[in-house]
Design a protein around this nucleic acid. Structure first.
Lengths: 152, 152
DNA sequence: TTGACAAGTTAGACACGACTAACTATATTA
DNA sequence: TAATATAGTTAGTCGTGTCTAACTTGTCAA
C-alpha cells in the first residue's frame, strides 16, 4: 500500500530532481558539481539536497558516490519535466514569447500549477495547433504586434 | 530618484499585500485578525509581516493601530491583483477550468510570472474573446470533453 | 467604571534552503 | 607513487516565514 506518504516535493527539491534528470538524460552521470552549476547553487547546498532526495528514495546516493534516479525518482522527475515542457510550449507556441522568457517562466511556474491545469493546457495547445481554419498563432502574433505600436 | 531599492517582494509579502488590498477594498479597515483568517495564518505571523511591509513603506502601520495601504503600497497591490485577475480569467475563460481551481492556481502562479508573460496573456484573452468567426472557448470545451471520455 | 473577552504583540522555537570556511576524499599527472 | 588540484562533505550561520504560549492592549456590556 506504499505507506501513502503525503510528502509533496518542495519547489527546490523539484528543481534538483529536474536537473539530475537532465544530466542523466544526456548520458553523463549526475555529478554534484554539475548539479550545483546547473542550479546556480553552492556545492554544499547540493549535498544537503541529495540527502533529502535520498531519504525520500528518489535518488540513489552515497557520500562521494555517483547519483542516479530511482524508479520512483524517475517517475517524479518525468512529471516535473512534462509540466515544464507543456508550459514552455504554451509560452512559445501560443503566446509567441521568446525562448528565454518562456524557459525562465516555465521554470518558475512549473511548481505552482497542478496536473489539472497542466493537462488542460496541453489539450489547449493541441486544440489550437490542430485547427485548420487559419493559423491562430500567426494571427495572434499580428494582433499583439499591432497592439504594441498602436500607430508607428 | 527614489533610492532605487531593488527589493522585490517575496511571494508571502505579496499575499499579505493582496489581502490587505481586498479588505480595504470592501470598505472595511484591514484588521490583523481578518488578514490572518484570509491567509490561514496565525495572528503572530501577521504582526511580523506588517512590520516588514511597513518598513518597505507599503502600508501605514503602528502597533495596535489600523492598517492602510500607502500610495506606493496601493500601486504594488494593484499590480498583484491585476496579475491574479488575468490568470484567473485565462483559466476560466480560455481553459474552461472551474472557478475554484482557477482561483487557487492563480493564487499560486501569480508570484511566478512576470509582467511580460501576464501582459501577453492579457492580450491573448482579448484576442481570443474578440474573435467573430466562431467561439473558440466553446469549441475547445467540446474538444476536451470528447477527449476526457473518448467513447462514452 | 470595571471586568471579561477579543485582538494584537512579543518571545522563543522550528523548518527550510541557502551560504562560507574548513576539512576530507578522489583523481590526475609528473 | 607522491604531490596537487578538484570534487564533495561537514559544521556553523543566516534569512524567511511559520508556529505556540504568554503577555498586553483595546472594547464593550453589565
Amino acid at each position: 500500500m506504499n505507506t501513502m506518504k503525503r510528502e509533496q516535493l518542495s519547489a527546490s527539491m523539484e528543481d534538483y530532481l529536474e536537473v539530475i534528470y537532465h544530466l542523466s538524460d544526456s548520458g553523463m552521470v549526475a555529478r554534484s558539481k554539475d548539479i550545483a552549476d546547473g542550479l546556480g547553487v553552492s556545492r554544499a547546498s547540493v549535498t544537503g539536497a541529495l540527502r533529502v532526495l535520498s531519504e525520500k528514495e528518489l535518488i540513489n546516493y552515497k557520500p562521494y558516490g555517483v547519483v542516479t534516479l530511482t524508479d520512483k525518482g524517475r517517475v517524479e522527475a518525468d512529471k516535473i519535466v512534462r509540466r515544464h515542457r507543456v508550459l514552455e510550449s504554451f509560452f512559445v507556441d501560443i503566446l509567441g514569447l521568446d525562448a528565454i522568457t518562456a524557459k525562465e517562466s516555465a521554470c518558475r511556474a512549473e511548481h505552482a500549477l497542478g496536473q489539472q491545469v497542466i493537462g488542460r493546457l496541453r489539450d489547449y495547445i493541441e486544440f489550437i495547433t490542430a485547427r485548420v481554419d487559419g493559423d491562430i498563432a500567426v494571427e495572434f502574433k499580428q494582433f499583439y504586434r499591432e497592439k504594441q505600436v498602436p500607430d508607428a
